[in-house]
Design a protein around this nucleic acid. Structure first.
Length: 476
RNA sequence: GCCGAGGUGGCAGAAUGGUUAAUGCGACGGACUGCAGAUCCGUUUCCUGGGGGUUCGAUUCCCUCCCUCGGCUCCA
C-alpha cells in the first residue's frame, strides 16, 4: 500500500519501522468548545486509516492527544467562570460521545497533556541543557529555531521568508520572532506546575513530542492531523523531538487532511463559521455523515452546504445501503442458515472481485471516493438482479460481502437504523395489518388515517408490492 | 511578499497519456401505486480556469498567467 507523505510530497510505499507494528499519532482537538463538522472529517479519515491498516494485518497503536490546557481553554474557562481542566473534561466527554455515535473507535489511547507534565519537563530540560532552548527572564522557556537548520522542511517555509508578526504580536522575550515557547511562566490564577525555571505550564508543541516520545518513541511511522497544523505545529514537533532525542526522522509518513469549506472559507472556530458536529450527526445520521466525509479524497477540500449537503448525504446513504438492509432483514428474521437458492455464480464471483478491487483502491492512498463509487455500482447491480427473497443465507452473505467490507473499513453501516425498535416491532405490524384490511375493503379514509397518525408519531409507512414497510421518519 | 493546496456538468465530487470523463444528489420521463412515498428503468448528447508547449493523441506531463482557499507561531 502507499501513502502520500506531506514531507516528501509524493506517494510512497508504506513500510513500517518494525512491522507488523504501526505507530500512529493524530493531533486531536483542544476541547474548549463543541466539535464541528470540520473536526469530524479528520477523525473519521484517520479512523478509516487505522481500520484499513488493521485489515491488512498491521498492529496499529493509534494515539490521539487531547490538549486539555492552553490559552484558549483558559480564556474560555474564565468567561464561563469554570476551572479550565473541568471545562476541557466536559467538552472532551461530549466529543467522545460524538465519536462513538460516528463509529470512530480505532483510537487506542487518548492521552491528556496535563498527565504528561513530568515528560514535558524532562524534554524541556534536555533541550535547555543542550542549548536548543533558552530561559527568558520571566522563567518562560523558548526553543531557538536557529539551532535547528532543518526547520521549515515539512511546510516548505524558510524561516527567513516568514513575515514575523503577520498574525500574532511580537514577543520581546524571544531572541528571534520565530522561536516558540515550550514552557510558559505562570500567570496568577491559572493552573501551573513547579519547574526548575519557576512555576509554569507547558507550551503547545512540546505536549505532543513529550507524549509521543513516551508512547511511540523518538521515531514512529505515521503522524496525522488537519492541514492547518503543518505550520507551525508539526514543524515545531519535528524540531523539538529530533533535537531532544537525537533521532531522525521523527516520523516516516505525514498525513494531512484538507479542510471542510463553509461559505467559501475553512470551517473554523475562530472565524465562527462552524456547523456543530452533533447537529450534523442528528440531521443526517452517522452513516450518512461518514459517507459525506469519505465521498471526497481526504486531501481535497470538501464543501459543506448547510441544508443541502446533509440532505444529499442522507438520500445517497439510504440508496446505497438499501440492499444491505434488505439482506440483513432476511438474515435477522430467518438466521444465517435460511434455505433458498444459491447466488448466481456470476454475481458471487463479482462480489469477490469487488472486494479485492476495494482493497486496492484503499491501498492507493485511501481512495475512499472511488471505493464508494464501486459500492454504488454494486447496489445498482443487486437491484437489477431482482429481490433476495429466494436466496439462501449463504447466498445472501456472499452478496453482502462488499457491504461487509464497507462496514469493516469505512464504518458505513455500523449503526443500523431500528436499534430503538423494541416494542414497536410488534405494535406497528399489527397496525399495518389493520390498515391492510381497511384497504382491502376499500376504506381508504381509514387506511390514510392510520398512516397519517403514525406519521405524526414519527413512523413512516410505505406500501410496496404486497407488503408495507415501516421506518422511523424523524431523520427526515 | 513567501510557502502550500485547489479550479472538472445545475450541485457535490473521482479518475486516466487514448473508445460515450466515474459515482452520487438534483431535474425530467416512464414502470409500480387507490393516493402518496420508497423502489426500479431511462434521459440529463453542448463539464476538465485562460494561453502556450511536449505528444499521433493532454483533463492528465511541462511552462506561464488568472482566480479561490489555507498557512506565515491560535486552529482539525
Amino acid at each position: 500500500m502507499s501513502i502520500y507523505d506531506t514531507m516528501s510530497r509524493e506517494t510512497r510505499v508504506f513500510a513500517p519501522i518494525v512491522p507488523p507494528r504501526v505507530g500512529l499519532y493524530v493531533c486531536g482537538l483542544t476541547p474548549y468548545a463543541p466539535a464541528h463538522v470540520g473536526h469530524g472529517r479528520v477523525f473519521v479519515v484517520f479512523d478509516v486509516v487505522a481500520r484499513a491498516l488493521r485489515r491488512w494485518g498491521y498492529r496499529v497503536f493509534y494515539v490521539q492527544n487531547v490538549t486539555n490546557l492552553d490559552d484558549k481553554l483558559i480564556a474560555r474557562a474564565a468567561e464561563e467562570d469554570e476551572d479550565p481542566l473541568a471545562l476541557a473534561d466536559r467538552h472532551f466527554a461530549t466529543f467522545l460521545r460524538s465519536m462513538e455515535r460516528l463509529g470512530v473507535r480505532a483510537v487506542n489511547y487518548y492521552p491528556f497533556a496535563t498527565d504528561y507534565v513530568p515528560e514535558i519537563l524532562a524534554q524541556v530540560r534536555t533541550l535547555v541543557d543542550h542549548e536548543f532552548a533558552y530561559v527568558a527572564a520571566d522563567g518562560s522557556v523558548y526553543f531557538e529555531i536557529a539551532k535547528f537548520p532543518r526547520y521549515g522542511r515539512l511546510s516548505g517555509q524558510r524561516p527567513s521568508a516568514l513575515q514575523p508578526g503577520a498574525r500574532v504580536e511580537l514577543d520581546p522575550r524571544k531572541r528571534a520572532p520565530e522561536d516558540f515557547v515550550i514552557w510558559k511562566a505562570a500567570t496568577p490564577g491559572e493552573p501551573s506546575w513547579e519547574s526548575p525555571w519557576g512555576p509554569g505550564r507547558p507550551g503547545w508543541h512540546v505536549e505532543d513530542t513529550a507524549m509521543t516520545g513516551r508512547l511511540l518513541g523518538g521515531r514512529y511511522d505515521l503522524h496525522g492531523g488537519g492541514a492547518d497544523l503543518i505550520f507551525p505545529h508539526h514543524e515545531a514537533e519535528i524540531a523539538l523531538s529530533e533535537s531532544a532525542t537525537g533521532e531522525a526522522p521523527m516520523v516516516n509518513y505525514w498525513m494531512h487532511v484538507a479542510f471542510v469549506i463553509l461559505q467559501g472559507e475553512k470551517m473554523s472556530k475562530s472565524i465562527g463559521n462552524v456547523f456543530d458536529l452533533d447537529a450534523a450527526i442528528e440531521a443526517a445520521g452517522p452513516g450518512a455523515l461518514r459517507l459525506f466525509y469519505l465521498n471526497a479524497h481526504y486531501r481535497s477540500p470538501l464543501d459543506f452546504v448547510p441544508e443541502k449537503t446533509l440532505v444529499e448525504a442522507r438520500e445517497a446513504y439510504a440508496r446505497l445501503s438499501l440492499p444491505a438492509r434488505r439482506i440483513d432483514e432476511l438474515l435477522a428474521r430467518d438466521g444465517p442458515d435460511r434455505p433458498g437458492d444459491r447466488a448466481p455464480e456470476e454475481l458471487a464471483n463479482a462480489a469477490e472481485l469487488l472486494v479485492e478491487e476495494l482493497d486496492d483502491l484503499i491501498a492507493n492512498d485511501f481512495n475512499t471516493r472511488e471505493a464508494i463509487a464501486r459500492l454504488f455500482e454494486w447496489t445498482r447491480r443487486l437491484s437489477d438482479a431482482g429481490g433476495f427473497d429466494h436466496l439462501s443465507g449463504e447466498a445472501l452473505e456472499t452478496l453482502a460481502q462488499p457491504y461487509r467490507w464497507a462496514n469493516e473499513v469505512l464504518g458505513l453501516f455500523e449503526r443500523s437504523e431500528g436499534t430503538r425498535a423494541g416494542a414497536w416491532e410488534t405494535a406497528i405490524p399489527l397496525l399495518i395489518r389493520i390498515r391492510a384490511r381497511a384497504r382491502e375493503r376499500g376504506d381508504f379514509a381509514e387506511a390514510d388515517r392510520i398512516r397519517d397518525e403514525l406519521a405524526a408519531a414519527g413512523i413512516r409507512l410505505e406500501d410496496d408490492a404486497g407488503a408495507t414497510r415501516w421506518s422511523f421518519s424523524d431523520r427526515k
